[in-house]
Measured scan of single mutants.
Amino acid sequence: MGTYKLILNGKTLKGETTTEAVDAATAEKVFKQYANDNGVDGEWTYDDATKTFTVTE
């Protein structure tokens, strides 16, 4: 398990959240659902060194 971070750079929603997941693929699924639930759809990037996903609208 590891802690993964999501940085939201949406047009109307900005912020950060974290999740505990077994791997990056699992964290990505959780974060994409979170972003979708909050109406954020954009370009995704992932930094393996910091376990950080970023979505920018």
Rank of each mutant, 00 (worst) to 15 (best):
G39Y: 06
E28L: 15
V22L: 11
T45G: 06
T17I: 15
A24G: 04
G42S: 02
E16V: 11
E43Y: 12
T52G: 02
A24C: 09
K5F: 14
A27R: 00
F31S: 00
E28I: 09
T26P: 02
W44A: 01
V30M: 09
D41V: 14
E57K: 04
T17L: 15
K32L: 08
F53T: 01
V30L: 13
W44L: 03
D48I: 11
V40I: 14
G42C: 02
V22Y: 14
V55H: 02
A49T: 13
F53W: 08
E43G: 05
K51M: 13
Y34P: 00
L8I: 14
N36A: 15
T50H: 06
Q33H: 06
A27T: 01
L6V: 04
G39D: 07
T50V: 06
N9I: 14
Q33R: 13
T26C: 06
A49Y: 11
V55G: 01
A35C: 09
T17Q: 11
E57L: 07
L6N: 01
V30C: 06
T52I: 06
T18P: 02
Y46N: 01
D47G: 02
E16H: 11
E57D: 08
E20R: 08
Q33P: 02
E43M: 14
A21W: 02
G10A: 11
K29H: 11
G42P: 01
D23P: 01
K14V: 10
T50Y: 06
K32V: 06
V22S: 12
E57I: 09
D47T: 05
L13F: 15
T54R: 06
D41F: 14
G39A: 06
K32S: 04
Y46D: 00
K14H: 10
F53D: 00
T12P: 04
E16Y: 14
F31M: 03
Y46S: 01
K5R: 15
D41A: 13
Y34R: 03
G10Q: 04
G10N: 04
A24F: 12
K5Y: 15
G2M: 15
E43I: 14
F53M: 02
V22I: 13
K51I: 02
K11E: 06
K14D: 05
E20H: 11
A27E: 00
T50S: 10
T26F: 07
W44Q: 01
E28W: 14
G42W: 05
K14T: 11
L13M: 13
G2P: 10
T50M: 08
D23W: 03
D48C: 07
T50R: 06
E16P: 03
N36F: 14
T12A: 10
Y34N: 02
T50A: 08
N9Q: 10
K51H: 12
